[in-house]
Structures are given as C-alpha cells and as structure tokens.
Design a protein around this nucleic acid. Structure first.
Length: 294
DNA sequence: CAAACTCCCTGTTAGC
DNA sequence: TGCTAACAGGGAGTTT
C-alpha cells in the first residue's frame, strides 16, 4: 500500500509499538483539539462506521449535534470530552480512542483516509476526523457525561492523588498490583505501557499484591506514576502543532523491550502475562513476591 | 469480590 | 515464496 516516495519511510521508521492511547496520548490529543475546536459549530456529520457510536443511532446522533457549538475540550481518564451548547441545552461528546483511534482537525479539501470512521464538519471549512484502524474506539453522546465519567477512579495527575492517598487506596487490596493499576475504576488513565513503566521505575514486581507493598515502595510507585505520566505528556506535547497529531517521543524503558538489557542493571528484561496483558519487567530490579516463579 | 475468559477488529508476525 | 493462524491490545460484559 505504500509506494513511491513514501516507501522508504516504512522501511526506516517502522514503529516498534503502535501508539496506544493512554493518559498522556489522550492529553496530547486534548491539547491539540482544544484551540482548534473551541468556538466552532458542527455543520455536518458523516458516519462511516456506525458501530463507533456507542450511545445513539446514526440519525439520532446527527440530529442531536448539528448546529451545536463546541465551547470546551477536556480530558477525564482516557476520555476526550467535547462540550457542546445549543441555546440553553448542554451536552457532551465523549471519545474513547481505545487501541488505534486518532483525531485530527484538517481542511475538508484534504482527501479522506480509508480508516476515517466519524467526521464532524466545522464552520470553518475544516473537519474533525476520528480515524480508527481497528474499530475499537467509541464515541458517546450524553446530556450528562458525569454519568459515565463518575465511574472512573482518581486522576493520577490531580492534586488529590497524593502519596498518602495511594497508600490508603492500596491497603487491604488482595489482588496483584499491575491489574489494579490497569483498572480504570481505581486510577483513571493508566494503560499497559505506563503500568509497566511505573512498576519498573518503582522497582516493584507486577505480581506483588497491593497490600504487601511497604510504605516506601508505595511512595516510590506514587512518584513513578506521576513522573512518567508527566514526562510522557511533555514528550507528546511537542508535536508540530499543525494538522496531524504526531506520535510522541517518549521511549519506554521496559515496555516492548523483552530480552533487551535493563537500562538500570543490564540484565535481560522478562515478559510474562498478567491479567491477559503482556507484562514487561526486570527480574533483577523487580524482586518477585515471596513464593513465586520469577 | 476477584480472577479469568470472551468479544470486538485488523495489521503484523511467527510458523509451516 | 505464499499461505494461514496466532497475536496484540482497552474495556465492557459474562462466567467461574
């Protein structure tokens, strides 16, 4: 499918991992969208894959958003929240990118991509295009988005996510730490990559039970989560700012680096499956729980 | 209550 | 070389 002048790109910069949107990627998308959408109204809507719509039929969705004005774009967990207003009526479009979703705001003259799923035309001859190869992404429309968003856990970058808060959250939790980090009702926004990265930085084995963690380990985990998410946001935030949201520059330390050298101790990194997710860690830096394999 | 599996999808890759 | 089957992954839903 690639040919001509573009073919060299795929050979040289073959992505090791496709950019799976977690909190930092979603935040970057929100930062990208906000200035491009604020104050715009929706003039038209193309539904190219209806099952992307999670809450409404094609016709209802169109009816309910046309001529509405976007007044704000925010993030909650891995959701992009696009706030709408029409007269006194307020509502919100929630976008969940899941595995492969991306958003861009682009001139309506630019030809569409085969993987574009939903397109909202704006009143400035541009379009918001939701593109999603694997079709896992979802778009919700709600009068009250808090009904969905309130099910989510704490925001890891909010001020109330303190060290002592996490300490209390982990106390008495019998399960393993990694599945807990992935649970969106526990902490909102961490996915497989940043869970592995945080545990590695905090030197905690992914199979350790939450309640077995010592205070200093929880403290290390807390600062690892905050540090890595912030670092990743910073590296995503430096896109060229024009049209397409480009992939970020954050380089995973363990995720996707199975059998490569640990950047801390040089030992070979391991990969196991935890909660049906590929899990990457250093068996030397991250000591396994008492009675277990490595 | 929690752990484990199934489903939704398709590009990529391992295995024959 | 070319094909097929397995795999990856977020999260809702279902079963153990």
């Amino acid at each position: 499918m690639l040919f001509g002048q573009d073919s060299w790109k795929s050979l040289i910069s073959q992505p090791i991992l496709n950019n799976m949107p977690e909190l930092p990627e979603v935040q970057s998308s929100v930062d990208y969208l906000a200035p491009r959408l604020k104050g715009r109204s929706i003039t038209e809507c193309s539904i190219l894959w209806e099952r992307t719509l999670a809450t409404h039929s094609q016709s209802d969705f169109k009816k309910l958003i046309l001529n509405h004005t976007i007044y704000q774009v925010t993030r909650r967990g891995k959701f992009i929240v696009i706030w709408l207003k029409s007269g006194k009526h307020k509502s919100a479009i929630l976008i969940h990118l899941r595995m492969s979703g991306t958003v861009e705001v682009i001139s309506s003259k630019i030809s569409r991509d085969p993987y574009d799923r939903i397109i909202l035309s704006l009143n400035n001859n541009k379009e918001l295009r939701f593109n999603d190869v694997r079709k896992f992404g979802k778009i919700y429309l709600c009068d009250d988005p808090t009904i969905i968003l309130n099910h989510l856990g704490i925001e890891p970058l909010a001020p109330d996510f303190s060290n002592s808060k996490l300490l209390g959250m982990l106390k008495n939790k019998a399960g393993a730490i990694k599945p807990l980090l992935l649970n969106q009702r526990f902490i909102a926004g961490i996915g497989n990559i940043y869970a592995d990265e945080s545990l590695w930085l905090a030197r905690i084995h992914p199979l350790r039970t939450a309640k077995s963690l010592k205070e200093d380990e929880i403290s290390a985990l807390h600062s690892a989560i905050v540090k890595i998410l912030n670092e990743a946001i910073e590296l995503k935030g430096t896109d060229n700012g024009d049209e397409v949201v480009s992939g970020g520059l954050y380089q995973p330390k363990v995720y996707g680096r199975t059998n490569s050298a640990c950047l801390r101790c040089g030992d070979k990194l391991s990969r196991i499956v935890v909660a049906q997710r590929g899990t990457h860690f250093c068996k030397t830096c991250q000591k396994p729980p008492r009675k277990s394999k490595n």
